[in-house]
Design a protein around this nucleic acid. Structure first.
Lengths: 159, 159
DNA sequence: CCAAGATGCGTGTCGGTGTGCCCAAGGAGA
DNA sequence: TCTCCTTGGGCACACCGACACGCATCTTGG
């Protein structure tokens, strides 16, 4: 099951306009609407397309501050990891959380309105996480790159 | 321009089903299709909804390895930052790049097929970035949380 | 009590979507 | 070499649904 460049063109276009109609996509890719509908359905059925989702402008909600939080636990026991993870998924300001190799156990990406708001988040969300030994926060001054999909995906010309 | 809980319900639903029809959304939110269409259009015009995009399953493309890369530059001069950023946006495997406060200058999130593939990326993409003094990579063992939108957005009941 | 904004219903038109059918290209096998 | 078969593409058509409009009603705030 390999994807040719037309499939990749469809995916690339759908990552921009998820609501594009078959005819609209067909014109951009260079296919008929019938052929495009078939390919798009195949891409969905095969799981290449997970979902169609609206991208919100978080700045409109005042969430302009991104913070990277490094967290080390008291213990790396399986029980400690489970306890921590069960709680971190409930934190409403956390958008990503990685279990990391190396010294830092977890790295979180937190969105806040501003620095004062992060202080509140640190107090009400982060400091209540269990088994935490150390929390270290770094503020992002600017976001240089923000892609949902690496461009390398669309460059793999297999056919 | 404040959003009430129905607006938030619309946004929450659209972040899941971006292709949902007006009637479909109207039923879930508890509105008529007319009222919903108006609200959705307002949300789009006011910029709350940036775009509708397809979410690809990156695992289907073999991109199962996430790497956090910390990069320090030789110099923090404006010229060095500009030179670095102009090149990092071209790296096809980089999905995010933050300019950070603190000792590390930049933090990158890189997607690779596996560790061997990351070695290739390190050699062909990262090591060619200009003005780099130090590169430090940490592998993500697992992704505990991955949200496009923090849940805190949908909890702000203003009306 | 009034005005303005929001809602809901109904309707009509337009467009998208799905289907059936035929055609072209490529590969396998006799 | 010829033929069969499979795969993918395009055309045409019909149906269903989405979308936009107008109008009446209701609620909210002053």
């Amino acid at each position: 099951m390999a994807l040719d460049r037309k499939d990749l063109a469809i995916l690339a276009e759908l990552t921009t306009n998820a609501r594009a109609s078959h005819t609209e996509l067909a014109n951009k890719v260079g296919l008929s609407s019938t052929a495009l509908a078939r390919r798009q359905k195949t891409l969905e059925d095969d799981g290449y397309i997970q979902a169609y989702q609206a991208a919100l402008d978080l700045a409109q909600f005042g969430l302009t501050t991104t913070v990277l939080v490094r967290i080390a636990l008291e213990s790396q026991s399986d029980e400690a990891l489970k306890a921590f993870e069960a709680e971190v998924v409930k934190c409403p300001s956390v958008v990503r959380c990685f279990l990391m190799s190396g010294t830092d156990d977890y790295i979180l990406i937190v969105l806040a309105r501003d620095i004062q708001d992060f202080e509140r988040i640190h107090r009400t969300e982060l400091s209540r996480l269990p088994r935490v030994a150390r929390v270290q926060s770094s503020f992002a001054l600017r976001e240089v790159v923000n892609r949902a999909v690496p461009t390398v995906v669309f460059g793999e010309t297999k056919r």
